[in-house]
């Protein structure tokens, strides 16, 4: 399985992972509540510029990740105009008719706004995912936000077992093939396959966890309330600069959209 993280030494990569969470959180909450296409579009442009500029993610690799996501959200644009509630399109001009299906302008705008909103949320998330090593995020949670280190390091230990689980799955599949068990096709086949693989895989994982826990306890893991860290993460000036800058850019974008009358009503205040 491929991680989305792309290793680099850019400004975004050097930031504390928590500063990226704090910076994008207000924008995520706000975009999730918008109903017009312009606000998400603005945030898509802003975030993509940051990912490519400050994150120095190669354009080709970014497009290979972002394009399939765009295809997924386009589904909203195709489906929503057809299943939208009647009240929403009552006074809207009819665009075209396909047998019993009627597509209204308001329905298309609603589909477009939803698709762009989901894409904007994905882009805001990608700013974090592409530039943050998940292990660093857990370390930051333990060091800065006081996540109990036994839980944090439990998760870090689990990360190490991803390749083991993949090879274990290969061994189980090979063992089943040797015994002449064929992989079934269709939904029923997938279900039977899942049943055959789930129990041995979970059983192996749990037994491995017990042995690892013994090894960790043997090295006094969790024996003391305080611990030292080989890799210390802290908030630097650049983190405060990024959080402040992102909040300012977001607020200015919203202000400009509001002044131009393109903001629309938020989902909680919407009268439908």
């Amino acid at each position: 399985m491929q991680s989305f993280y792309i290793a680099s030494d850019s400004f975004l990569h050097r930031l504390n992972p928590l500063s990226k969470v704090l910076a994008t959180l207000p924008a995520l909450l706000f975009v999730a509540l918008t109903t017009e296409p312009w606000t998400p579009l603005t945030f898509i442009v802003l975030t993509v510029a940051l990912i490519l500029g400050l994150g120095r993610i190669p354009v080709g690799r970014f497009l290979r990740l972002a394009a399939p996501l765009l295809l997924l959200v386009l589904g909203f644009l195709l489906v929503y105009p057809l299943v939208v509630r009647e009240e929403l399109v009552r006074n809207s001009p009819l665009l075209f008719e396909l047998g019993p299906l009627r597509v209204y302008q308001a329905g298309v705008i609603f589909g477009l706004a939803t698709a762009l909103r989901i894409y904007a949320l994905l882009m805001l998330s990608l700013l974090f995912t592409l530039t943050t090593d998940a292990s660093d995020f857990i370390r930051a949670l333990v060091q800065q936000w006081r996540l109990p280190y036994k839980i944090g390091y439990g998760a870090l230990a689990a990360f190490r077992f991803v390749p083991m689980l993949q090879s274990e799955l290969g061994v189980i599949q090979a063992a089943h093939r040797v015994r002449g068990i064929a992989d079934g096709k269709g939904l029923r086949g997938t279900w039977q396959q899942m049943q055959r693989y789930a129990v041995p895989l979970l059983a192996t994982a749990i037994r491995r966890a017990e042995r690892t826990a013994l090894a960790m306890d043997g090295r006094a893991f969790g024996a003391f309330p305080e611990r030292t860290y080989y890799r210390a993460l802290r908030f630097h000036r650049r983190d405060y600069f990024f959080i402040g800058g992102f909040w300012l850019a977001s607020a200015l974008s919203v202000l400009v959209l509001w002044q131009m009358g393109l903001l629309g009503s938020l989902v909680l205040l919407q009268q439908v």
Binding site: K150, I151, G154, A155, A157, A158, F159, F161, V162, L165, L201, L202, A205, I206, R208, A209, E210, T212, A213, L214, M216, D217, F221, G222
Partner: peptide, 14 residues
């Protein structure tokens, strides 16, 4: 205990 956390982590991982 470390064992409980690791068992939970491995179920979570799988």
């Amino acid at each position: 205990s470390t064992r409980d956390i690791l068992v939970t982590a491995m179920i979570a991982l799988t």
